[in-house]
């Protein structure tokens, strides 16, 4: 059964939280990876590669660079899975 958008969003929130060792309950779609979670460029790359592994997709560098929030990561993944 394909993953629903809600399940996908939960996984993205969990992976974002794990990247910086924070509680996933505090991470929402509006959470800003940089301003709220203090991601640096190494975190962004690690996070992107984990999303690629988890969802079996390839995210090109340019699109990955455009992601600032958890919600934007979810939208990007939804567009890649179509």
């Amino acid at each position: 059964m394909p993953m629903t958008q809600e399940q996908l969003a939960d996984t993205v929130r969990r992976l974002a939280a794990e990247q910086v060792s924070v509680d996933p309950d505090g991470v929402t779609l509006e959470t800003d990876l940089f301003a709220d979670l203090n991601f640096d460029s190494l975190d962004v790359v690690d996070f992107t590669m984990k999303l690629e592994d988890e969802f079996a997709v390839t995210i090109d560098d340019e699109r990955a660079t455009g992601v600032r929030t958890v919600g934007q990561a979810v939208e990007l993944l939804m567009s890649l899975r179509r």
Binding site: S41, L42, V44, V45, D46, T48, M49, D61, A64, T65
Partner: peptide, 9 residues
């Protein structure tokens, strides 16, 4: 940039 960090990782 992102591409360089990815290559390193």
């Amino acid at each position: 940039d992102f591409a360089t960090v990815r290559k390193l990782v």
